[in-house]
Design a binder for these strands. Sequence first.
DNA 1: CGTAGATTTTGAAACGATTCACAGCAGCAC
DNA 2: GTGCTGCTGTGAATCGTTTCAAAATCTACG
Lengths: 333, 333
Amino acid sequence: MAVSVKEVAARAGVSVGTVSNVLNRPEHVKPDTIRRVQDAIAELGYVPNSAARQLREGRSRSLALVVLDVGNPFFTDVARGAEARAAEDGLTLFLANSDDSTDREALHLDVFAQQRVGGVLVSPVGEDLSRLETMRGHGIPVVLVDREAGESAFSSVSVDDKAGGALAARHLLDTGRRHLAFVGGPLRIRQVADRFEGASSVVATVPEASLRLFGTDEMTLDEGRRVGEALVPLITDGRVDGIVAANDLLAIGIQRALLFADQPVRMPEDVGLVGYDDIAFAASAVVPISSVRQPSALIGSTAVELILEAADGAAPRQVVFEPDLVVRASTVG
Amino acid sequence: MAVSVKEVAARAGVSVGTVSNVLNRPEHVKPDTIRRVQDAIAELGYVPNSAARQLREGRSRSLALVVLDVGNPFFTDVARGAEARAAEDGLTLFLANSDDSTDREALHLDVFAQQRVGGVLVSPVGEDLSRLETMRGHGIPVVLVDREAGESAFSSVSVDDKAGGALAARHLLDTGRRHLAFVGGPLRIRQVADRFEGASSVVATVPEASLRLFGTDEMTLDEGRRVGEALVPLITDGRVDGIVAANDLLAIGIQRALLFADQPVRMPEDVGLVGYDDIAFAASAVVPISSVRQPSALIGSTAVELILEAADGAAPRQVVFEPDLVVRASTVG
DNA sequence: CGTAGATTTTGAAACGATTCACAGCAGCAC
DNA sequence: GTGCTGCTGTGAATCGTTTCAAAATCTACG
């Protein structure tokens, strides 16, 4: 059943060492021999066993990416960028989904540690990075994605979320709004907390402006709708005239609730709405949504770059991208 | 650097066999010994090497899923269902993206064959299943996802796409439309061809009804918008009054183009729109979109079920789910 | 106290690929 | 003919785990 180098060697009338040489350094093998071995491989349908190879080499030619939510287009874009960059170096990228759960995250990290992957890219769920420390201690390079490493000795690639939050809030203030709402949560997610903080700090600079927080349990379309419905009366009253959503899924849900309320809200006249991530659906929304853009594919490819550096023993490095604002009809007429 | 069973054994003062027993069949080991070994494991930070385990066992405790497009929420939902079911049996699921390319599909399948994964779930890009045949020949169970296996000896789990296409078309006819447009492509994608065929066959039963095909290169928001713009004048003329989109991404793009045209089209008054897949965004669209629902998570979990059966040597089996129609405001007032 | 039987523990073999020191050999110069 | 060099090819050792027959130890009971 199992075809191994041994069978191939027997069939081709050479030793196992020679078969391995044909596979890994054909320049040391006579052309005629190469052909004989390749014929044998084809005839027997030999497929190398990567477990054996890996065991011998001590490390696998693969990387892992653990994201917070595969359902969020932002992360699939990051994954695309990472995979493309990894492929350039002949590396395979495993994609795993932690779904905002520390348990699932831990589970995946364990599996990857056991696989001895060449490196782990992770957008960590919580603040506790000790498990990642141990991974690095075991010689597995770790890069934080979409989260700044701060004083810790990890490499990281992130986007300045405070700046992003500020960008969104400032845009609303610049276009005349004064009573802002920030929708997102839970605040234990660092990205959310930072975006809120950025927005807050900008609002604080304008005396008559206010910012009110509307917390959510998750950042989904449904939660957005729920909050959107609650916002309608406030907007009608004039108590809210600008909304910053912590991501585009929320923003889309909010928009839907506002436009389809019994007493519909006009956008951008009655209220301005800014999302975050600039996923494709944001541009295709009913009223296209202004959004804070993050260079998602670039984040992915840069993360792989940093892993490769780390694997070469380079010192950890923090890359922080600046977000920019894509202005659409949800904020300006 | 590398901590192996050997070091653990030495530290705990037992043999390597005992360490392995603690890990795999603790019921045969004295409680006191278990504790001593576990302490040693903790102190040394031992992490099992799954390459070695796999080499010994000949097969890895993991499955692979290769999807056509990770960017499509339908497939991430399938992946979720599959992963959950796999986790029940302690199996890891690797997710890979073929992006509609046979090359990328082949690449991923090669890697998985070398990994000796316990099974492969794949929604194949083309019609040529020979590579999958060889995988099965090598003893790796294969299950086709979202594609019926037909006469071939694979297991498969699919949804009746002809019935789905028919469902969509019949609904439009039932609500009084007669001039239908089918948007989707390329037709080499089996699912698209089947949905079109289903719609055609229903339309053919109504004398005065017609169905026109609008081909696309890919099934994305942008392509939907492009076709939507082309449809506007036809709808205004009354030459088209119902649209079947081959998936929801297209439908959302189409809707946006129609609603935001210079001379906007009313929905459902001027035209009815039916999508396919029932992704979350369809329900949250401006005008919520009627859509042919596929039980995505169930498809994923069933596929894993079939893999497990096949691994136990059971005969291949074809599971075909019936789609159903979720009616929303895009087709009825 | 001896022993059958059960419970624990042992340690060498095996999984499949890579590596590397070394062997075989042809060609060549002296 | 001898010794070198360069090119090919060899095969035993190795990676870390599991397995399993056999050994060691314990338990209960006459």
